[in-house]
């Protein structure tokens, strides 16, 4: 871990200014991912701006019936929020399927959205990685790929987005709110928040330097049945091999997103329109153009079976 200076931000404006004005400055909130990466010197901030004490932690009702989740609300707080439990069950389910009680107490909503990938080669600092060292090459290609993405990848990166919460936010059509160094605010649809690797895998999100996520908003509750199923090798405390988030309506229509299979939560609206035709049709459409390896091709039939499971439970 490189030496760094540390400050506790007094306000969001000050935090944004501090990070925007200093090269190598970063926000830190929960820190559960950033600090880990700093230990490996995969992340090497020169200055940390601790935003944990900013008043961005609240969870409040929106006039349109939606919900505004402060960027610093912890995973635990979001999952335990009465409205989240009652009306956005898929979000509560996804959050508690992720990580552990300890990590969820620390991890924040914005930090979770911004967590970096868990490709083992990303962590293997003696080997090339286009996310770590742009242009150096992808060591995962031709390597051990069982956990990695099967769709949305590029010849430069096959890392998967490891999140659970983000998959639920995707089916809930969440919006990410930010404030930029110039004080302006913007809203980014969750579907635009995680970028596909293309030929620039090191660029993972659309945020500008110093741009701070302030909240995630949810539209009016979608109703229906909420399911999140996460498949992993052990029963807990593991990243998804495949996960599936579903909001299913009584007429058989609904929304579907997959986790663990792509560089971002994988929702294909045209594919979910096929829900009434059954899981095979949805998965065939959602994974069209997939480029799995021999080591992870099983994820596609697994995604179909996980969706079948969720649908069978939803109907039950």
């Amino acid at each position: 871990m490189r030496p760094f200076t540390y400050e506790r931000a007094a306000s969001a404006e000050a935090a944004v200014a501090a990070v925007a004005s200093r090269p190598g400055a970063r926000f830190i909130a929960g820190g559960t991912n950033l600090l880990d990466l700093m230990k490996f010197q995969i992340e090497t901030p020169a200055h940390l701006v601790d935003i944990r004490h900013l008043p961005l932690r609240g969870i409040e009702d929106l006039p349109d019936g939606g919900l505004r989740i402060g960027a610093l609300a912890t995973n635990t707080e979001v999952a335990a929020h009465p409205r989240v439990k009652r009306e956005y069950g898929v979000l509560a389910r996804a959050i508690v399927a992720g990580a552990t009680g300890q990590l969820r107490n620390k991890a924040t909503t914005a930090g979770n959205l911004l967590q970096r990938n868990r490709c083992p080669y990303f962590y293997e600092t003696s080997l090339p990685c286009n996310k770590r060292q742009p242009g150096s090459g992808c060591s995962a290609l031709g390597g051990v790929t069982r956990s990695l993405a099967v769709v949305g990848t590029s010849p430069h990166c096959i890392a998967q987005n490891p999140g659970d919460m983000a998959v639920a936010l995707r089916v809930l059509d969440a919006t990410v709110e930010t404030v930029r160094p110039d004080g302006s605010q913007r809203r980014i649809a969750i579907g635009d928040f995680h970028l596909l690797p293309g030929d620039r895998p090191e660029i993972e999100h659309p945020l500008a330097p110093g741009e701070l996520v302030t909240a995630v908003t949810l539209p009016r509750p979608p109703g229906g049945t909420h399911r999140y199923h996460k498949v992993r090798d052990r029963a807990s405390y593991a990243f998804a091999i495949v996960s599936v988030a579903v909001v299913l309506q009584e007429d058989g229509t609904g929304r579907v997103a997959f986790g663990g299979v792509a560089p971002r939560p994988w929702r294909v609206e045209d594919a979910e329109a096929l829900l009434p035709s059954g899981p095979a049709a949805v998965v065939a459409a959602a994974f069209q153009g997939a480029t799995p390896t021999a080591g992870n091709a099983f994820k596609i039939p697994l995604a179909e079976r996980a969706l079948a499971l969720v649908l069978s439970e939803g109907r039950a």
Binding site: Y6, T32, L103, N105
Partner: peptide, 27 residues
């Protein structure tokens, strides 16, 4: 493990459990 993979460093901070290895003292 020092990387949040084992839970041996669990402590209570303000009454809530966290992994002490994934938190800076400064925070």
């Amino acid at each position: 493990c020092d990387h949040g993979h084992c839970g041996a460093c669990t402590v209570l901070v303000n009454g809530v459990r966290i992994n002490a290895c994934l938190s800076l003292a400064a925070m």
